[in-house]
Nucleic acid binder design. Structure first.
Lengths: 166, 166
DNA sequence: GTCTATAAGATGATAGAC
DNA sequence: GTCTATCATCTTATAGAC
């Protein structure tokens, strides 16, 4: 609270004129960050071909994750003990997930299991980067290759399925 | 310190008879946990075929990560502010990484870049599981599929390279 | 080898002056 | 709307009794 107050040019106590508690501030930051991430993701040209769109979404997501590791922890690591986002700010997080889900479906990948693999591999890039080399790009620069690996795997699975049906 | 003391049947202050500081305790836990993980990984039958061995290593690693999320945070998320492992206990962490590196080489995958992809995708499973469904298996059960996806991608890359050489 | 007592500093939060 | 003053509580850590 003291650090945050200083950052916005106040004493810690004055923050209570705007928020009723520390967790209310966390929740506001959680909400605002997810909205900012969503805003960036929705800026991606919708007319792009689906595969290029997925690549670009992945890159934007990872840029967002590594440009502020503390924000990344708040949003994706459940790092603050006893903090749970409110239903309203949680829904902003679900909107971000929906963006991924929709982009995958546009690539012909509608499987819920595939979406979990996607969040694991993309989230893994951010986790490794921020934990082992914050500020660097050793893992982030693998994003395009990992996206291609993912696409090859799940588009093959889909083709195999379609062939079985025909 | 109070919680830890209680867990081992002591007052917090008595812990200072065994360790000079809180960070010394963190370092000892970091070191011991990595050794335990390494012990489990080295128990995998060395005569197994390399691909089955890689699958088993991945499963053991992820079981270890999800059975104790707080230990996972200490080892892989750099979650404790200002804690840095000592050189000695850091080397135990490197031994764990070497296990993965060696297992990949046995699969014909010797690329440093591939090792980084491996840590990202496997670490991503643990990160998603512990952050979003601690104690569950929604992501952990994808381990075999993700391992196969990884193998297919990097063995193909290798085959393509060999064909070019011949 | 563990305890009580205690220190010095941080934390989240409230009351009330200006 | 921000401040000073203050609170109760928690934290890591030390000193010294038994």
């Amino acid at each position: 609270m003291r650090d945050l107050g200083t950052r916005v040019g106040m004493r810690a106590q004055s923050l209570y004129a705007y928020f009723p508690s520390k967790y209310a501030i966390c929740d506001a930051m959680f909400d605002e960050s997810n909205r900012e991430l969503l805003r960036r993701l929705t800026e991606v040209e919708p007319t792009l071909n689906p595969v290029e769109r997925l690549h670009q979404l992945a890159r934007l997501f990872l840029d967002f994750c590594v440009e502020d590791p503390e924000r990344y922890q708040l949003l994706f690591q459940r790092a603050l003990p006893r903090f749970e986002p409110s239903p309203e700010s949680y829904s902003a997080a679900m909107d971000v997930l929906d963006t991924a889900s929709t982009a995958l479906r546009a690539c012909g990948i509608g499987d819920a299991r595939a979406l979990d693999v996607w969040t694991a591999v993309i989230g893994g890039i951010a986790a490794q980067q921020n934990a082992n080399e914050p500020g660097g790009d050793r893992w982030v620069r693998l994003t395009d290759e990992i996206t291609d690996m993912f696409l090859a795997h799940f588009r093959r699975a889909k083709d195999a399925k379609n062939m079985g049906q025909k």
